[in-house]
Design a protein around this nucleic acid. Structure first.
Length: 460
RNA sequence: GUGGUUUUAGCUCAGUUGGUUAGAGCGCCUGAUUGUGGUUCAGGAGGUCGUGGGUUCGAGCCCCAUAUUCCACCCCA
């Protein structure tokens, strides 16, 4: 049965060019991570569902890919007393834990927290780790949004110091400078948002308010206010939020905030943290850093500094990186009093931006082979093979045209298509003279030379 | 998860109110050039029209289902 091949929605194949482009970005990020003293770890693609569920909010749980149990996965259901009758009455939510106990990881932070708790006795704190691996989300795909994508995370866990925040911002600064991507780094502090929520009546409102004001740049002030009213925020609180959102994106605004938030405890702490971070940042970074009190970020576990990176050029409006401080992430796994802070690079979106802005180095997809040996019969091919091995032994990448053909044009086409700069032609004359006709494809110039001269020519 | 959109040759796309054998450009192959490519000229191959049903004498075109693409929500890297 002939079947048209396809891949699942939201996944992609990467050809040689794309893989090389992705590796270029990965290398850049990894080098900066290493230079800043971070050590690599890797965790499995799948985690126990109990590790993943409930960590990303109810929305997040729905986006988790679940892995159906091996073997007779219906056993636990059919074993029930009134099994056959009740099966139809069970909801998906009730059936799920009976048939699936593993899921694909949704991000790298939760698996990291799990790793830290499991290895706490072998870890030297503060622990600086980086991790570059794919993650999966059962989201509906669109531009810049995939079901399988890579994150590159760096986290420092086991230290409260705001120096860590600074180090991570510096990593953003350096990576995007090296990649030549103009970006804006936005920072805020969850404690300021908590202070606002408290001033509006209750800390319970934090999530509602955060989600609302996070949309400010996208839908505008009026619509944000409308949404918050619909969520049941009272008029007095609305006035406070309005005043909050009217503040210019500058650190000076913090003084106005003091009044809006009644200078409550959360506010005082948040202000302290932001100001301490600014001391570190002063004159030490090149990227535009924006204090944006409307930045909220979705993931629920952040408790202090939050950060998000957006490209200033190109059409991608979504963030290409983000992170923040989480004080209690390891608590859920039974380890208290360990604070961490981390950032993440969205590899796929960064690659999308580089692609659109044409920021990849020119010769990235050039084949490493310097020369292709062409020939007309078996004898020439064998000669070319010996030359190839000799060149490789001298550290020069080379290859032989694999098929025997009289058509030299075809062999030249091949070299052209693959950006191999030289061809070495070996026919009857060359064999008897023990020479190679070396042609440079760009200029079309060709000269006959011995293999030792060729090694010298391509040697450096 | 909600609403819309896309799918026709290897690629980018035409295809009229349903009507003979579904087209173009680029690419590919062959030859002019039996040992010299990127130019030119001549010729050629390649399509179950995303998939499965239905309506019709007749469907690329109309209807239903499904997959996929992109977009807006939701949310997020």
């Amino acid at each position: 049965m002939l079947q048209k091949p396809s891949i699942p929605q939201g996944t992609r194949d990467f050809g040689p060019t794309e893989v090389l482009q992705r590796k270029y970005v990965l290398n850049c990020i990894e080098n900066v991570f290493k230079q800043a003293g971070f050590m690599p770890i890797e965790t499995p693609s799948m985690e126990n569902l109990s590790t993943l569920t409930g960590k990303y909010g109810s929305e997040g749980d729905q986006l988790l890919y679940k892995i159906i149990n091996s073997g007779d996965f219906m056993k636990k259901i059919t074993e029930g007393n009134d099994a056959t009758n009740s099966l139809g009455n069970l909801t998906s939510k009730q059936i799920l834990p009976l048939i699936a106990e593993k899921g694909l990881r949704y991000d790298l932070t939760i698996p990291f927290a799990r790793y830290v708790v499991m290895n706490r006795n072998n870890i030297q704190f503060p622990f600086k780790r980086y991790q570059m691996q794919p993650v999966w989300r059962a989201d509906r795909p669109q531009k810049g949004r995939y079901r399988e994508f890579w994150q590159c995370d760096a986290d420092i866990i086991g230290s409260d110091s705001l120096l860590n925040e600074f180090e991570l911002l510096l990593i953003y600064d350096q990576v995007f400078q090296q990649l030549n991507v103009p970006v804006t780094i936005k920072i805020n502090n969850r404690k300021i948002l908590s202070a606002l929520a408290e001033a509006c009546g209750s800390i319970e409102l934090l999530n509602t308010i955060a989600i609302g004001i996070d949309k400010l740049d996208k839908i505008g002030l009026d619509k944000v206010i409308d949404e918050l009213k619909n969520e049941g925020i009272n008029d007095q609180a609305i006035e406070k939020i309005k005043a909050y959102l009217h503040l210019p994106k500058r650190i000076d605004s913090i003084n106005e905030l003091e009044h809006i938030c009644n200078n409550n405890a959360s506010f005082v702490k948040g202000k302290e943290e932001i100001e301490a971070l600014l001391v570190y940042l002063k004159n030490r970074t090149h990227t535009a850093i924006e204090i944006d009190f409307s930045l909220a970020r979705g993931l629920g576990y952040y408790t202090g500094t939050i950060v998000e990176v957006q490209a200033n050029a190109g059409t991608l409006k979504m963030s290409i990186g983000g992170g923040g401080r989480y004080d209690n992430l390891t608590n859920i796994f039974g380890l208290n009093g360990v604070s961490g802070v981390g950032i993440s690079f969205g590899l796929d979106r960064i690659c999308d931006v580089l692609n659109e802005l044409n920021l990849y180095p020119q010769n990235l997809n050039a084949k490493s082979s310097k020369i292709l040996f062409c020939h007309f019969e078996k004898e020439g091919q064998l000669k070319g093979l010996d030359y190839t091995l000799l060149l490789r032994a001298n550290g020069i990448a080379a290859e032989v045209y694999p098929d025997i053909t009289k058509k030299i044009g075809k062999q030249l086409d091949y070299a052209n298509a693959l950006n191999i700069p030289f061809v070495g032609m070996i026919g009857e004359n060359e064999i008897t003279e023990d020479k190679i006709m070396v042609k440079e494809l760009i200029s079309g110039n060709q000269t006959e030379m011995s293999i030792s001269d060729l090694i010298k020519k391509l040697g450096h």
